[in-house]
Amino acid sequence: MYGKGILKGLSVTWKRFWDTYTDDISWMLRGKKRYNSDEGIRHRSSKDTKGIFTVQYPEEQLIVPEEFRYVPFLVYDEGADGKKEVRCTSCGICAKVCPPQCIWIVRTNDPSTGRPVPVPTDFFVDMDICMNCGFCAEYCPFDAIKMDHDFDIASYQRNVYNLEKLMKPASYYAGIRPENYTREEEARKAKEAAKAAKAEANAAAA
């Protein structure tokens, strides 16, 4: 029969259309929020999703996974009396590995000796050029530069971030990437403990 294939196809469309109501209603009957709630958004990107699929940005936002990366930021530790201790040593690895070459670092020189000190005077990332590849965070040996989750950075001007604007506290980092943070802290503690043990052994030997 001519038209049978069309009808068969339409039955799929019809079912999909119907689902947009039934799914909403079933959520309502269960007294749960399908929209504007984490649970609802998670459901919409699960294997069982049916019915309305769209996440209404900006009212709703997708829940990004831990590894999500956008632009980089510099991590600082909060020292005593609120001093910002930036972890970066201005070693330059991130600037060398960055594929579009959008990291610019000014190293600090000790004015009396002229020798470099391991803190950057300034640090620029040209966010318009950054391709969000994550290499800087991946290859930084000091866990000093990390990828941010905040993707709402559209603006009317060019975005060149300087050291001031790039710095975010370690607690923020721990908040967006808890697993990575814990892993790194453990590694760091283990390393420090090993160092301390070695120093002790040396002291005992001497």
């Binding site: 060398k96 960055c98 070459q101 990291i103 610019w104 670092i105 000014v106 620029f124």
Partner: peptide, 15 residues
Amino acid sequence: VKPFKSRWPDGQHTF
């Protein structure tokens, strides 16, 4: 070839 020398150690940003 990359990396460009102007980026480090005294890399002042220029457009």
